[in-house]
């Protein structure tokens, strides 16, 4: 069945502000496909973001939308989810937003295992502020603040999320919207904190400085860099050198979810209080 994308969008706000060919649009589209497949009601869904190109996504979504401060989307989202545990809460953030300025909130949301879906659009750069390097910029790459090449080691966001306790972690890439949509759907359906990293192209800020100013070229670069988990398992290590593995990286359905824990706490406390009354 065809997805009625514009039903989920504020159609009067289109065309969106992103550069021609920007991968964020593909992520948003996959996200809508996933929401549609799950049958989520627009009224029951909140989309929260911080600051950056990616963080403009909620403005286009016809839902309960919250464009917050830089790095802090998860903190606002935690407030929304704790206050309305039966509603759907999605956070969409860039790599800098989520893992640099928002890194602390990220690991703690993972640790709590609160039922929020976190989509990280990882394009390895600060796009909106003019192409400065981020915690995921590859070693040696050029950015506005690494004119001589990047010497900072990059984060592996998936491993970071797993280590911190997220209970669903997957990685997709914008060259394959179908696959991305599947992981987004599984992550949204998962009851717990889920992290879906979407490798994306910022040809305008990253590509331009690294010989890939054309979106098609940069999406192809991503396509050549990624290997599915299934394929990677059959590949010799030397062939995997420099490759990024996509797929469902981690899943744990056993750990208690945070809002469940809190509602049980309320029940316990109220039962005890009832005895006194």
């Amino acid at each position: 069945m065809a997805v009625d994308y514009l039903h989920y969008l504020r159609a009067d706000k289109l065309p969106h502000m992103w550069c021609p060919g920007c991968g964020i649009g593909i992520v948003v589209k996959s996200m809508i496909g996933a929401i549609d497949a799950l049958g989520w009601d627009k009224n029951e869904t909140a989309v929260v973001s911080g600051i950056g190109c990616t963080s403009r996504a909620p403005g286009y979504m016809d839902m309960n939308t919250l464009h917050t401060t830089h790095g802090r989307a998860l903190t606002f989202a935690t407030g929304v989810k704790m206050a309305a545990p039966d509603k759907h809460v999605i956070v969409i953030a860039g790599d800098g937003d989520s893992s640099a300025i928002g890194g602390n909130h990220f690991i703690h949301a993972c640790r709590r295992n609160i039922d929020i879906t976190m989509i990280i659009v990882n394009n390895n750069i600060y796009g909106m502020t003019g192409g400065q390097f981020s915690p995921t910029t590859p070693y040696g790459a050029k950015a506005a603040t690494t004119p001589h090449g990047n010497i900072d080691p990059a984060f592996d966001l998936g491993q970071l999320a797993i280590g911190a306790g997220a209970t669903y972690v997957a990685r997709g890439s914008v060259d394959n919207g179908r696959m991305l949509q599947k992981y987004l759907k599984d992550g949204m359906a998962h009851h717990g904190f889920s992290v879906i990293e979407a490798l994306s192209n910022c040809h305008t800020q990253f590509g331009r400085r690294n010989k890939m100013s054309d979106p098609v070229v940069m999406v192809e670069w991503i396509a050549n860099k990624v290997v599915t988990k299934a394929k990677a398992e059959k590949m010799p290590p030397e062939e995997l050198e420099g490759k990024i593995i996509t797929g469902e990286l981690h899943r744990n359905d056993e750990r208690p979810e945070y809002t469940d824990e809190y509602s049980q706490l309320i029940q316990r406390v109220q039962k005890k209080a009832g005895v006194h009354q």
Binding site: V48, N64, L66, T68, T69, R72, L74, T75, F76, A77, T78, G79, V80, M82, A83, H105
Partner: peptide, 8 residues
């Protein structure tokens, strides 16, 4: 951030 989110 959390109290702003919850207030909404």
């Amino acid at each position: 951030g959390a109290i702003i989110g919850a207030s909404l």
